[in-house]
């Protein structure tokens, strides 16, 4: 029964994607867009398959993935750490809150030119930009999750003999896990977007760089390949995170 529901959900999910590809094909078939500028999906997918076997392209994927993972991982550590500390300590909260309010709405990509000057064209500038963008959703959702932990869970642990300084990791963090992971999921999507964007602006490798290079030389097919690659990577990573989430939250209701 559950298996059937899952399949029909998957089918429903595939339908709009199939529709999008059909519209894409129709635009070309009915002559609304010339195939030289908007290549047909079949051709793009063939190129994608070929490129995935290409060593140079694989290195570009690796560069993008490395930046994405490094940036996302640092954002998780910092976001969860600062979020927990702010929820646990009014003093930390007093320090963190104004900074977050000032920095969170700032378009982090505007920092990118400065980061390039400071950190150079390599991994560091891109990883830093990913951290700057992915940090806030993780930090905020950790903070709110940790602030809303039911008082009586903490009391139950304290009565059982847990010392106050261990409450944070033994009760608050696990109890806040649903909202921490929601923040991580948003942070991951943002990481995918930002790493690609940074590579488009200035880079010597990575998927964003492949796209920009192809566009500048009017190679329309090669322009779409990295786009589809990053969305497939996003899909896979999100799937992995979802799997991790349902494992970590197996005891929580409504997951």
């Amino acid at each position: 029964m559950k298996g059937r529901v899952l399949t029909s959900d998957v089918l429903l999910g595939i339908a709009p994607i199939a529709l999008m590809i059909a519209v894409w094909q129709a635009l070309i078939s009915f002559g609304y867009a010339p195939a030289t500028l908007l290549p047909p999906p079949g051709q793009v997918f063939m190129r994608l398959v070929r490129q995935l076997g290409n060593n140079e392209y694989q290195q570009d994927i690796a560069a993008t993935l490395f930046r994405l993972f490094a940036g996302f991982a640092i954002a998780v550590v910092l976001g969860v750490g600062i979020g927990l500390a702010a929820a646990a300590s009014p003093a930390v909260n007093a320090v963190v809150r104004p900074i977050v309010r000032v920095l969170a709405p700032l378009p982090k990509v505007a920092l990118y030119p400065a980061l390039l000057l400071l950190l150079g064209f390599g991994h560091e500038s891109k990883i830093t930009l990913v951290v700057a963008d992915a940090l806030f959703p993780i930090l905020l959702s950790t903070y709110y999750g940790a602030s809303m932990v039911e008082q009586k869970l903490i009391w139950s642990a304290m009565a059982a003999g847990t010392p106050p300084r261990q409450i944070l990791f033994k009760v608050v963090l696990p109890a806040a896990m649903p909202s921490v992971l929601t923040g991580c999921r948003i942070g991951l999507v943002i990481s995918c977007i930002v790493v690609f964007l940074a590579e488009m602006i200035t880079s010597t490798d990575g998927l964003g760089h492949v796209l920009v290079t192809a566009a500048r030389t009017f190679r329309a097919v090669d322009m779409f390949v990295p786009l589809i690659t990053i969305s497939l990577l996003g899909l896979i990573l999100n799937g992995l995170l979802q799997w991790l989430r349902s494992y970590l939250l197996r005891g929580f209701p409504e997951v």
Binding site: L153, W155, S156, A159, V171, P174, M177, F252
Partner: peptide
Amino acid sequence: TGPGPDRGPVFQEFALFPWKS
């Protein structure tokens, strides 16, 4: 002066740890 294992609470809301069996 604070909670201790000599006094064990049982709450109306159960307050079980949802992440533990």
